[in-house]
């Protein structure tokens, strides 16, 4: 059981460092799924949103040093 938990933690660790970043990305992908496809908007919006999420995350982390 302990070994399985360790493997699970390793697998989750591949994708999650900062839970907030993961939550924001998944929410944005869900929003794109709901909005972009039916409205036929450009997928560039998808990429721009992801870039904005990363920017907010690292800049907030940099500010937290204080």
């Amino acid at each position: 059981m302990r070994a399985l938990l360790a493997i699970w933690r390793e697998c989750v660790g591949l994708f999650v460092d900062d839970g907030r970043l993961v939550a924001c990305v998944l929410l944005w992908l869900a929003a794109c799924w709901i909005l972009l496809r039916p409205l036929g908007w450009s997928p560039i919006l998808l990429a721009v949103g992801l870039a904005a999420i990363l920017a907010e995350n690292v800049l907030r982390r940099a500010a937290e040093r204080s």
Partner: peptide, 22 residues
């Protein structure tokens, strides 16, 4: 794509913070 994005953005976030000395 979702897993790649989470994996890639995790590495990129860490690499940016390391390159900036954070």
């Amino acid at each position: 794509g979702t897993l790649l994005l989470l994996f890639g953005m995790r590495w990129l976030r860490k690499a940016i913070l390391r390159a900036a000395g954070i």
